[in-house]
Simulated assay, not measured.
Amino acid sequence: MRSFFFYFGVISLVVIVVGGSFCFWKFSPFIFAKSRSQSLSHSDRSAISLPEPALSGGISVEEALASRRSVRSFQDTPISMEDLSQVLWSAQGVTDREKGHRAAPSAMALYPLTVYVVAEKVDGLSQGLYRYEPGHRLVPVFDGPAKDRTMTAIRQPWIMSAPAILLISGRYDDLRGTFGDAAEFCVHAEVGHVSQNVYLQAQSIGLGTLASGGIDGDKLKDAFGLPSEESFLYAMPLGRPQEGR
């Protein structure tokens, strides 16, 4: 009888520890995130010009491809404005000013994507949410700590450790008149182009990232008062990888 209670106690303890750990992993972003019912603090500050991107780097495309990995753990150190600028340029920056072409290909060059930055620890940039404009500047959308508010809409707790997060949204209606039922495919393909650019650019400058779905777009739009026609498709944390990633 004693052995029965002993083994019963051991099994119960294991269930509590494993179950508790899983629940913490799954729901900690929502436990620790600030309520999205807090009043919004929309910014009326003017756009912020970003440093000019570099057009040559220290490693080749082949080296970046060979060493690229998804990163889920980041150092608790800020990233520089120069590095953020470089990554944003790789995502949606203009590469042909005369024709308006950008770094990532787009069906019929209609560019239905928008890239936002959740800035937590970026040297020279206040905490908040910013919209990237392809003219290479940031437009403030929300002033103040924005990561906790973002995490109410994202189910990947590891994103919490990143000093910055890129949020990529698409507007299907921008393409429906041209592509009809293929509009969603074109938007999704373009998100893939952008995320690969971000992966390779981040790798080339010593940063890491992860293409992460699982976004509750309605919660995210409610949290920041973002346009209803945008569909949020990817969250890409950005920072210096921890050893062992």
Rank of each mutant, 00 (worst) to 15 (best):
F5V: 09
F5P: 04
F6A: 12
Y7M: 11
S12D: 08
V15I: 15
I16D: 07
V17P: 07
V17C: 07
F24D: 09
K26N: 10
S28T: 01
S28L: 00
S37Q: 06
S37D: 15
S43I: 15
D44C: 09
L50S: 13
P51E: 06
A54H: 14
A54K: 12
G58N: 14
G58A: 15
I59Y: 06
E62M: 13
A64H: 02
L65A: 01
L65M: 09
A66M: 07
S67P: 00
S70M: 10
F74L: 06
L84W: 12
L84G: 02
W89F: 15
S90I: 09
G93M: 03
V94H: 00
T95F: 06
T95N: 01
V115C: 14
E120H: 08
G124W: 02
S126K: 15
G128I: 04
G128H: 05
Y130H: 07
R131H: 12
Y132C: 11
E133T: 14
P134G: 00
V141Q: 11
V141H: 02
P145S: 02
A146P: 11
D148Q: 12
D148V: 02
M151S: 12
W158C: 09
I159F: 02
I159Q: 05
A164F: 07
L166P: 02
T178S: 14
F179C: 13
D181F: 13
A183L: 01
E184A: 10
F185E: 15
A189P: 01
E190Y: 07
I205V: 13
S212M: 13
G213I: 09
G214I: 08
K219Y: 04
D222Q: 03
D222Y: 03
P227C: 04
L233Q: 03
M236F: 01
G239V: 09
R240F: 14
R240P: 03
E243A: 10
